[in-house]
């Protein structure tokens, strides 16, 4: 059992988010200005959307390392197909979302049905997609994002960024699915113990595959939206999302071993990472420093929720009680 109950872990994540906001606003005045807060929401939304699928996969006891190039592929193909026009999006967006979901389903089938370890399966799919896009584009994909996508990514409704609204809707749906549906209940059960789930008559394989399918879907969605933010698709745009999507889930209080956590926590995780990211350039640090921070954050959060730590807490408590 994790040392922290589910609710406490999520509260802790939000506590960290608020503390970080306050600290940052001291370091750089103007951090809490509406414009800046809005840009935090926009950047957090991209992490949050990718991490949505990752949350489901991790709750189900797996991991998805194919996120970067599912995202990147969708971004590149969308800009190429649309060629800057809005009209073709009508078929492009559904097609690419379905393609992302299909890639996820292939991951899930390889893992759940054929027993390929999740890391190998998703890492291989990631490399294959990377190669495929490089072959297809010849290494230089340059096409601008259509206006509609740009509006979705950076537009505003009043003071609210459009993508914030998109994210909010997705977040509500994800939370509903996790907390209030049969599928959510099964996912937690499969992630806690696939054996117990099977012995309880749950559709274990189908549930695990569905998690990966969703992850492919959200990665593709995030990829298309991200082109609107950067104005175009470029190679390597998905790479940071491998670490951030996993880190956001871990910060949000999910056990990396599966069976616990909630998307509500992941949202706080996405904000924590975004604020950190925003903070570092302010301190004149580079992309490299960011990677170091992501790695350290993953290590620290999973260490704190590890069994060994729980034992240590229990030991210290006993000592104190005895002494």
């Amino acid at each position: 059992m994790a040392p922290l109950s589910r609710h406490r872990a999520i509260l802790l994540a939000y506590g960290a988010m608020i503390a970080l906001l306050l600290v940052t606003s001291i370091f750089s005045p103007g951090f809490l200005s509406p414009g800046h807060l809005r840009s935090i929401v926009v950047l957090a939304a991209f992490i949050g959307i990718v991490a949505l699928g990752q949350t489901f996969v991790i709750i189900g006891g797996g991991i998805d390392l194919s996120v970067p190039w599912v995202l990147n592929s969708a971004a590149v193909l969308m800009t190429l197909f649309a060629a800057g026009q809005d009209a073709p999006l009508l078929w492009i967006v559904p097609l690419l979302l379905a393609a992302g979901a299909l890639v996820g389903a292939v991951n899930g089938i390889g893992i759940a049905v054929f027993g390929v370890p999740p890391i190998i399966m998703t890492l291989a799919v990631n490399v294959i997609l990377q190669g495929g896009i490089l072959v297809y584009t010849g290494g230089s994909p340059a096409a601008a994002a259509p206006p509609l996508i740009q509006y979705l990514a950076v537009g505003r409704i009043g003071v609210v960024p459009v993508i914030g609204v998109v994210w909010l809707v997705l977040a509500l749906l994800a939370s509903l699915v996790l907390s209030r549906t049969a599928f959510g209940r099964q996912l937690y059960a499969v992630g806690t113990s696939a054996t117990v789930a099977t012995f309880s008559g749950l559709p274990t394989l189908r549930t695990a595959i569905a998690g990966y399918t969703l992850s492919g879907f959200t990665a593709a969605l995030a990829g298309m939206l991200l082109t609107g933010y950067s104005g175009q698709a470029y190679l390597g745009m998905g790479d940071p999302y491998l670490f951030t999507s996993i880190a956001a889930v871990a910060i949000g209080g999910a056990s990396i071993l599966g069976g616990s956590g909630h998307y509500i926590g992941t949202i706080a995780g996405a904000f924590v990472l975004t604020i950190l990211t925003g903070l570092l350039p302010a301190l004149n640090l580079s992309n490299g420093a960011l990677l170091i921070v992501y790695g350290a954050v993953i290590l620290v959060t999973v260490s704190v929720s590890s069994d060994a730590f729980a034992d240590l807490f229990a030991f210290v408590r006993r000592r104190r009680a005895a002494g």
Binding site: A182, A189, S193
Partner: peptide
């Protein structure tokens, strides 16, 4: 412990694990 119960999950969730359809409609619990 290995086949019968989800130890970290509640008594409620364990009791109803095999009968989720009995209290859900259109997938909603």
């Amino acid at each position: 412990r290995g086949q019968g119960l989800l130890l970290s999950k509640s008594v409620r969730e364990n009791l109803t694990l095999s009968v989720i359809p009995r209290f859900s409609r259109f997938g909603l619990l």
